[in-house]
């Protein structure tokens, strides 16, 4: 199995940690610890993917605890949300056009 590229957390770190976009640092750390109790390989001896899951959790929390990276992530997330919102306001014809365009571009 070829290894994956340089690590960037998969999925949304906020979702992974189960916290809101406004979470404080203390809350992030707290969430990290509660979650790690569930996914850490030491507590899941029989789960071969535990190390992977725990690693994803660690990457997510280090990202969020780094103010600069968190800012960048927040901006990206806001952009995505805005795009989604805009999309929702489109009428059906435009929606189909956008989807078809994205399909072709893929």
């Amino acid at each position: 199995m070829p290894p994956k590229g340089p690590e960037e957390p998969e999925g949304n770190p906020y979702e992974l940690l189960g916290i809101s976009l406004e979470a404080t640092e203390a809350e992030i750390r707290k969430a990290y610890r509660t979650r790690s109790l569930k996914v850490h390989p030491d507590r899941n001896r029989n789960d071969p993917n535990a190390a992977q899951k725990f690693h994803a959790l660690t990457t997510a929390s280090t990202l969020l605890l780094d103010p600069l990276r968190r800012l960048a992530l927040d901006a990206q997330l806001r952009l995505q949300a805005a795009k989604k919102q805009r999309f929702a306001t489109f009428d059906n014809k435009r929606k189909t056009m956008v989807t078809e365009l994205e399909e072709r571009e893929r």
């Binding site: 290894p3 994956k4 590229g5 340089p6 690590e7 390989p41 190390a51 725990f54 690693h55 660690t58």
Partner: peptide, 10 residues
């Protein structure tokens, strides 16, 4: 860095 961990470089 918290272990277990993995990291790659190109």
């Amino acid at each position: 860095a918290t272990i277990p961990t993995r990291k790659s470089e190109i």
